[in-house]
Design a protein around this nucleic acid. Structure first.
Length: 563
RNA sequence: GCGCCUGUAGCUCAGUCGGAUAGAGCAACGGCCUUCUAAGCCGUGUGUCCGGGGUUCGAAUCCCUGCAGGCGCGCCA
């Protein structure tokens, strides 16, 4: 049952207000000593023409105390409610235990489709730390939406189109070696790419050559396509390794090249709808009424642009998936771009334009400045993962040398630490990447949560098979109550995370849960010789373990049973 | 110049609907392993919530304005 909602209903009945309105007013006091729920009465002062403390008293007098409320107190303008601990603990624990590992699972998304565009790496370019945010945020949203019953379509909108591929082929033709490329794949391509930019500063003809090779790709030239597909395959193979480690999946790899034969229709449609306007030789859609600069649809040489392809992609996604939300997990650099694309869709008369949303996140930079592929100034994500796993393995060898499957556990913890670091703050914040920070495993970190999970698991295993006889009174203490409240609100946190597209809400919540659990663990012995009380404390431990594991898995982080 | 975002403890960040005494982690120092995993727990203290106005019973939160930083502003993606 939803105690808060029920309480709101009772209050509403007593005062003659709307239940939903009261629920909206109800809040949680800053300190549990002040109560479990509070009604601030200040807003009622105007309509009731009384001082807030008087109102609080008035309501207290009229209210028939429900069974789940132990005490009601007036504190200034607040009316504070104390739950009946016995009732509360029994009710919440009953629900959580019944749900088991599926606590928080819901069907609210049934029949609704969410398209999420995330990661979207570029072919022939390194999979670097700059891609981690989009990949981790998008993947976490994918998992959370799915858990709430939505049909989710994960799209890796590959950057596989543009003159840079012509340039790359040029560089390959001049200086490339097949062996080198097969061996080092993206690193070798990056080297060629960097070299071309350098040499083109002296020799402008290299750029012309690049454009010519790209034209060949466009025209379907056999050799150009063969080389391009080869590069693409090597890049995706390399990316696949990282995706597997991060537990990231996609349902579609339809990238820019996929929409190449679909942009023409969009241009025609814009013309038919009289939205296209010639401007300095280019064709644009004016967006004055949206207070936005015009969106360029066609270059003066007739070629299409990024925005044109995104329009085609949005249309395609709508036709193919009939989405309820179409999310783009892309850095905030592209704020204006997406505003323009969505505005053009609206002008085209598509009512679903408002279902498109840019899920923006902050920039990643290095301590000594911006990442730059062109200058070769990048940190490969794989290197970060490897460093984290290596450090983890060293810690395990020191702390738990007898542990089995050390390599596999180190992998889960190291990778988890990296994912956690990027999902541990609101997505809009910029991140200055630092190995020191990512490789810190103390305090609020992935390993902290995994450790708490493993410790809970260890206790549950040690306790062995238990029967169902419970004595819930053993959980009526501050530490257990704090844990139970966090367990209770886990489902609502998942919903909030989807409403705001903020996986970080989940990260924070399960971090709080681990903290509360650690406090409980320190204060209370779980296994003792009182059978029913032990059953109950073990059940709480199990519930925490399962929710931690579920929460971590929704973020893409594994939870080893031992560490 | 214009637009968007950010500004909270030495550092990195929470603070979801305007609510009670603004909180965590890191770093520093001190304590806690004979007892369920010490990657843990407890303790010590620091705030011009960027500045200035305003709205409100009440503002870190809303509005206006100034400052600082980031990003973006037609043929790159």
């Amino acid at each position: 049952m939803d105690i808060k909602a029920s309480l709101a209903g009772e209050i509403a009945k007593a005062v003659g207000l709307d239940g939903a309105e009261v629920l909206d007013m109800l809040e949680t006091p800053p300190d549990p000593k002040m109560g479990d729920a509070a009604l601030p009465c200040f807003k009622l002062a105007k309509t009731m023409k009384m001082a807030p403390p008087k109102i609080a008293e008035e309501i207290m007098g009229k209210l028939q105390k429900p069974e789940y409320i132990a005490e009601i107190r007036v504190a200034g303008g607040y009316l504070n409610f104390f739950y009946d601990k016995t009732f509360y603990v029994k009710t919440v624990m009953g629900e959580v235990l019944a749900a088991g590992t599926d606590w928080g699972k819901a069907k609210i998304g049934a029949g609704k489709t969410i398209v999420i565009d995330y990661s979207s790496i570029n072919i022939a370019k390194p999979f670097h730390i700059g891609h981690l945010s989009s990949t981790a945020i998008g993947s976490a949203l994918y998992k959370i939406y799915s858990y709430l019953g939505y049909d989710v379509v994960g799209v890796n909108h590959l950057g596989d189109w543009g003159t840079q591929f012509g340039k790359l082929i040029t560089a390959y033709k001049h200086w490339g070696s097949d062996d080198e490329i097969n061996k080092n794949s993206v690193s070798a391509m990056l080297e060629l790419y960097v070299r071309l930019h350098k040499e083109a500063e002296q020799d402008e003809s290299l750029n012309d050559e690049g454009r010519a090779w790209f034209k060949k790709i466009e025209d379907g030239d056999e050799e150009a396509l063969r080389i391009f597909e080869w590069f693409k395959e090597l890049t995706l193979n390399e990316a696949k390794r990282v995706y597997d480690r991060l537990d990231v999946q996609f349902d579609s790899y339809a990238g820019e090249s996929f929409y190449n034969d679909k942009v023409g229709a969009v241009v025609d449609e814009l013309k038919e709808k009289n939205l296209l306007e010639e401007s300095d030789g280019a064709y644009v859609v004016r967006l004055d009424e949206h207070k936005l600069p015009p969106a360029i649809i066609l270059k003066s040489d007739g070629a299409t642009l990024y925005a044109t392809r995104d329009l085609a992609a949005a249309k395609y996604r709508h036709q193919t998936y009939d989405f309820d939300k179409n999310l783009y997990v892309v850095a905030y650099q592209q704020n204006l771009h997406f505003k323009q694309v969505f505005a053009v869709l609206e002008k085209m008369g598509y009512g679903w334009a408002d279902k498109c949303e840019h899920v923006a996140f902050g920039m990643v930079s290095l301590e000594d400045g911006t990442l730059s592929t062109r200058e070769g100034k990048v940190v490969f994500l794989e290197d970060v993962l490897n460093a984290a796993v290596e450090k983890t393995l060293a810690i395990i060898n020191e702390k738990s040398p007898e542990l089995e499957n050390r390599a596999a556990i180190a992998e889960d913890i190291g990778v988890g630490a990296v994912i956690y670091s990027t999902l541990s703050q609101s997505r809009i914040k910029d991140i200055t990447f630092s190995f020191d920070r990512v490789l810190n495993f103390d305090g609020e970190t992935g390993p902290y949560l995994q450790y708490c999970h493993a410790r809970c698991n260890s206790v549950v295993e040690r306790a062995g098979e238990r029967n169902a006889k419970m004595d819930y009174s053993v959980l009526e203490n501050d530490e257990a109550m704090a844990v139970i409240k966090l367990l209770e609100s886990f489902p609502q946190v998942l919903v909030s995370a989807t409403e705001k597209n903020e996986p970080f809400y989940v990260t924070r919540h399960i971090t709080d849960l681990a903290q509360a659990c650690n406090k409980y663990y320190f204060e209370h012995k779980i296994i003792d010789d009182n059978e029913e009380q032990t059953n109950t404390r073990v059940a709480l431990t199990k519930a925490v373990r399962d929710v931690l594991k579920r929460g971590l898995s929704l973020l893409g982080i594994k939870a080893p049973d031992k560490m």
